[in-house]
Design a binder for these strands. Sequence first.
DNA 1: TATGAATGAGACTTCATTCAT
DNA 2: AATGAATGAAGTCTCATTCAT
Lengths: 214, 214, 214, 214
Amino acid sequence: MTESHGERKRRANGEESRRRILDAAAEVAGVRGYDGTSIALVSEKCGLPASSIYWHFKNKDDLLAAVIERSFDIWAEALTLPGDDTDPTRERVTALAGQVAKTLLDSPDFLRLGLMLTLERRPEEPSARRMFLQVRDTARARLAAVLTTLAPDADRDAIDLVTTYAIAGADGLLIAKEIGGDSVDLRPLFELHARALHDALARLAAGDPATETP
Amino acid sequence: MTESHGERKRRANGEESRRRILDAAAEVAGVRGYDGTSIALVSEKCGLPASSIYWHFKNKDDLLAAVIERSFDIWAEALTLPGDDTDPTRERVTALAGQVAKTLLDSPDFLRLGLMLTLERRPEEPSARRMFLQVRDTARARLAAVLTTLAPDADRDAIDLVTTYAIAGADGLLIAKEIGGDSVDLRPLFELHARALHDALARLAAGDPATETP
Amino acid sequence: MTESHGERKRRANGEESRRRILDAAAEVAGVRGYDGTSIALVSEKCGLPASSIYWHFKNKDDLLAAVIERSFDIWAEALTLPGDDTDPTRERVTALAGQVAKTLLDSPDFLRLGLMLTLERRPEEPSARRMFLQVRDTARARLAAVLTTLAPDADRDAIDLVTTYAIAGADGLLIAKEIGGDSVDLRPLFELHARALHDALARLAAGDPATETP
Amino acid sequence: MTESHGERKRRANGEESRRRILDAAAEVAGVRGYDGTSIALVSEKCGLPASSIYWHFKNKDDLLAAVIERSFDIWAEALTLPGDDTDPTRERVTALAGQVAKTLLDSPDFLRLGLMLTLERRPEEPSARRMFLQVRDTARARLAAVLTTLAPDADRDAIDLVTTYAIAGADGLLIAKEIGGDSVDLRPLFELHARALHDALARLAAGDPATETP
DNA sequence: TATGAATGAGACTTCATTCAT
DNA sequence: AATGAATGAAGTCTCATTCAT
């Protein structure tokens, strides 16, 4: 109780204000997308006037980039990819996929917003989009590393292919969930995906050139 | 007063104007998304004044729904799903997946715009979104029918699951292509996906309960 | 009385609206300068909403450029420079200067606004400024032509010099009037200026190299 | 707690901060005018936060008035008008005009900004404008004194007239230079002006009523 | 002697839409 | 079958200024 947080006219606290703005922006942007996120809406939701938002962020684009960055950081922290195990059993791959699925569904702000941004092709790319692609690349690199430990003999191109397919499946299933809502049970779907990945890895490990084009 | 003040061609051809508007709207919406598509932009792109757009369409929402509908129709026509063959060989499933991939990449307007709309959660759902979900359901039903012919013994839930997974993969791969551009070769990816689907179907046909949760 | 102008909801009349906007903008800009002229102020003064102003003009810059152009045209029309007379008597030059003085004081909008714009050095030049410099050049050319008829033997550089000096005097005296208000009587000042110009022309006609640097 | 968190130099030197602010404000105001000079721009240019500017100056108006005052002082110091000589030869008047021209071109901040302010007619006159008119009056008085020594017999009204004309010429030529840039050589122009002033003074000394209105 | 943070007002501009012709 | 003109609402962002520390 050394600092009563009930003070009337809030004493200036930049850190806390910034957080409140980011929270509000994440909430709005996750729902309405880039264009649909208006500063006025964020302002209303966080209780600070619009002009205060511009004290903390250069502009709307900058704000949304920050939203994506923070949301990704939270997600990446929640997801501790076990990178030391090298046993590509189906159980293990399934567990891995399940972990990813769960964390994605828990904090999907950056992913949903990011996918929306990804699908657009504006004349000048928003830095929020750039930020999404950047963090997505980070995640991709980590996943590729894990897959490499699971199929050490596979060449880089093959790993790349499976990595891309793994991510694509996750993206697609997230969308399926978005559309289907409660009628879609993600668990068996991610299991299906895990099995597909496992089999692909197994073929890779066996040197099966199944992924090559004839 | 013989109504001859110099207008040459295009003596008020409604059909043609409507088409020009739809073309322009499709182009803009495919690039900028729902919010990013302004009537002014469409007007500029099609050469007709904004008020003329409102003569042909009730409002922006209506216009975009029409865009999606038309784009889907074009796509559906291009894609003649062979629904009579019942041989679930890998080659056949692969060919099928390849066909879908190709047509999606050729006319992806409705899909890209639709996915953007899908990812948003507005208070009041745009009818463009509703339209997308509707045509998507049509496509889904057709795909489910095909899969059923390939695995006649599978139960409805299993077919549903694989159908959802099939669509999810397509969505995800489209996004991967969107992000990766030329550095992503969709062919082997769709082959991977086809193989995954084939294997799943095979397991289904064999009564393998692999997709059930333990 | 074929068209009662008392109609309630004004029937759309672009020409008239445009004029009203220009009138209002000229009034405001002449008083407040470029930055000081807000669209809201113009809107209030002309009775049309701000968005209507943007129907008629691309943006504020475009509007102010139009203000300058029109104001100049009005001025140029009011000032019929007698270009056929070639008698450089003092009376004639004085009359000429007086005419310029009078018309400048009658419609000084473009000049006052233009001079303000002239004195600024923005990173990107407003097109209103460019417009001012352009019409000013037009005026300058006409004046140079008149001076040439008055001193046909003078070379181009000399005419240029006197032209510049003539304009500078007019600018300066307008400013003096602006500052001094009623306490400044422009008539004798322009007479002084006219005399200076006459003497300079006379020296030029006589081949006196007085304007050359030693 | 020995107050030692690393600040090195500049231990809060008020005088120096004030100077930096004035420098920045002079630079900005000379370029953008009164309205165009924003506190944020000045802050950025001088490296001090906006709130610090308000510690040194009451408000923007106060700041710009200070800019004008200081700029004028610098100019006045640079210009040592020789007031003791009473020989109205052309050479002397020319030299005098040249001196004024040179100093004006060297430090024109106050003049350019002042002229911009002069041309505006706001509802409430900025004190910066008042300051400009005040220092301008000071300069005017000094010039009138010099002219009086050159034409001791002239009456006050005549001296006033010539003084006004002298200043108007200087203003106008500054504008000409502003517009013409390198293509305008001020030297012969100021010589022309000097000659005009000399002749006017000579006529005054001779009692020539040339400046009177018929 | 400063300054980080905040803020209401207002800047310019675009929005989707309507209406009279 | 169309369109020129208009319009209120809302958009992003900057403004000058204040205040607690």
